[in-house]
Amino acid sequence: MAVTDEAIEKIKDMIVSGALRPGDRLPKESELAADLGLSRNSLREAVRALSLIRILDVRQGDGTYVTSLDPQLLLEALSFVVDFHRDDTVLEFLAVRRILEPAATAMAAAHIGERELDALTARLEALGTQPSVEELVACDLEFHRSIVRASGNSVLCSLHDALSGPTTRARIWRGLTQQDAVSRTLHEHRAILTALRARDAEAARSWATVHIASVEEWLRSAL
């Protein structure tokens, strides 16, 4: 194991064990390096690496702190990594969305408020029957994010945000090339909303699955 990796593991162990808790300030560099049996250079590199993935917060002139370790904060690093996806992995991202998003939609059926449902309905109605592809995709992104957020699960919401980006170009491509893509998307959105208003979790799950699977099916045939 590289020296820096060893230093990262030792700091991680302190956090996992509870020796360092969210919001705690790390001991002085010289003290921590001595306690962990590390050189100050390797400790410094470990702190830099852990700050990049939002585990630690380095405050100039104040010290280094453990962050809140909130899932949304930690999963920002996943969003960064996902940005480097290759086009040939988009189907895999869609497959993961097809696994996670219907479950989140079913959960939302029990939690989403009438005001949120009214806002989603109003946004769909404002699109009309023949929106541009760009308008439709922008609405689609916000539509799904709002529903996943309504599931009440911050981890699911963060995962959805990370996974949604790589599929945006495929959604635009579909809207431009598939004859009935716009009407199908609008129909499926309305069906999802109807299920959510009825508090029918299984219908909401089914329609969300159909909705994502239709994009996946089209992309597989297009590729």
Score class of each variant (00 low, 15 high):
8 I>N: 01
13 D>F: 09
20 L>V: 04
21 R>Y: 04
23 G>N: 06
23 G>L: 15
25 R>T: 03
32 L>K: 02
39 S>I: 01
40 R>A: 04
42 S>C: 03
45 E>D: 05
50 L>S: 07
52 L>R: 10
57 D>G: 03
61 G>A: 04
68 S>L: 06
69 L>D: 02
78 L>Q: 05
85 H>C: 07
87 D>P: 01
87 D>Y: 04
89 T>D: 15
90 V>Y: 14
98 R>V: 12
99 I>H: 11
108 A>V: 06
110 A>R: 10
112 I>G: 02
115 R>P: 00
115 R>H: 09
120 L>R: 06
122 A>H: 04
125 E>M: 10
131 P>H: 01
137 V>P: 07
139 C>M: 15
145 R>Y: 14
150 A>V: 05
151 S>W: 02
158 S>T: 08
162 A>N: 06
164 S>K: 14
169 R>G: 01
171 R>T: 11
174 R>C: 11
176 L>P: 06
179 Q>E: 14
180 D>L: 13
182 V>A: 06
186 L>N: 03
191 A>L: 14
191 A>N: 12
194 T>G: 12
200 D>Q: 03
203 A>Y: 06
204 A>D: 01
205 R>Y: 14
207 W>S: 01
209 T>E: 15
210 V>I: 15
211 H>N: 02
211 H>D: 12
213 A>E: 10
214 S>V: 03
221 S>D: 15
222 A>Y: 12
